[in-house]
Design a protein around this nucleic acid. Structure first.
Lengths: 117, 117
DNA sequence: TTTTTGTGTAACCAAAAGGTTTCATGTAAA
DNA sequence: TTTACATGAAACCTTTTGGTTACACAAAAA
């Protein structure tokens, strides 16, 4: 099971949880209540975030409050920093490469000799 | 199948491929030759990167050269930007978009002047 | 021409991801 | 105490991921 910051923020649910607790700690039930899936499923997501160091848990009575520990995002930031020149100098609307359009249009299409079975 | 930039860069193999082709296009065999796993496995990774728009493919004869299209990283950067305060303040590396123009391709991180937060 | 090289893809497989239900346990409330 | 609540975790299931081998085919080389 991969447990790094890149993997952690790859999951949309993880990002949603981080968005929720970024500015105010919430207990686990409060977080789970915002999602369609079960509390257990959300609990597993939170557990992963804790293992990655992106969320810290603070016990208060029988409740456990999750608070964001976003410093670990710097790992991602540092990796991206080396490529910042490739997208910061341009506008922030990325262009779609031709190959992607072809692939999305249909896999049977070839660039040159179009005979494929 | 998730096909977004966050998911794309979550995979260490994907990041390694991007690192390889960031500054020079390489054909698929050349990329696959750098990994332990089979060419087919690497091909699938490249395909995902193409579908995410992070790699573009340019055909030359029977070879297909992969080149990085890192503009899509801005999606990740924009999400992280909102939390920059949580980890940027310790390094004190503020952003100043007006001064970025002299930045060229390269791994050098430049110190910039100006205050954002 | 024939052979080799570079690539695309199908079929298959094991492991991991991501969900569920169920139950155990500690704390708070009645 | 008894009950309700908040959480942790086990057992299980289905789908996705990430790999393999085998093969097809076009382009380059011999």
């Amino acid at each position: 099971m991969r447990r790094d910051t890149f993997q952690a923020i790859a999951d949309p649910t993880h990002r949603a949880i981080l968005d929720m607790v970024a500015y105010q700690p919430l207990n686990i039930n409060a977080i789970a209540g915002q999602f369609e899936v079960s509390r257990t499923a959300i609990y597993k997501h939170i557990k992963i975030l804790v293992e990655c160091g992106l969320v810290a848990i603070q016990q208060q009575g029988r409740e456990r409050f999750c608070e964001a520990q976003l410093a670990h995002l710097s790992e991602v930031a540092m990796w991206m920093d080396q490529y910042k020149a490739f997208w910061k100098t341009k506008h922030d609307v990325p262009e779609e490469p031709e190959n992607v359009k072809e692939k999305k249009a249909g896999k049977h299409k070839k660039k040159k000799s179009g005979k494929k079975k």
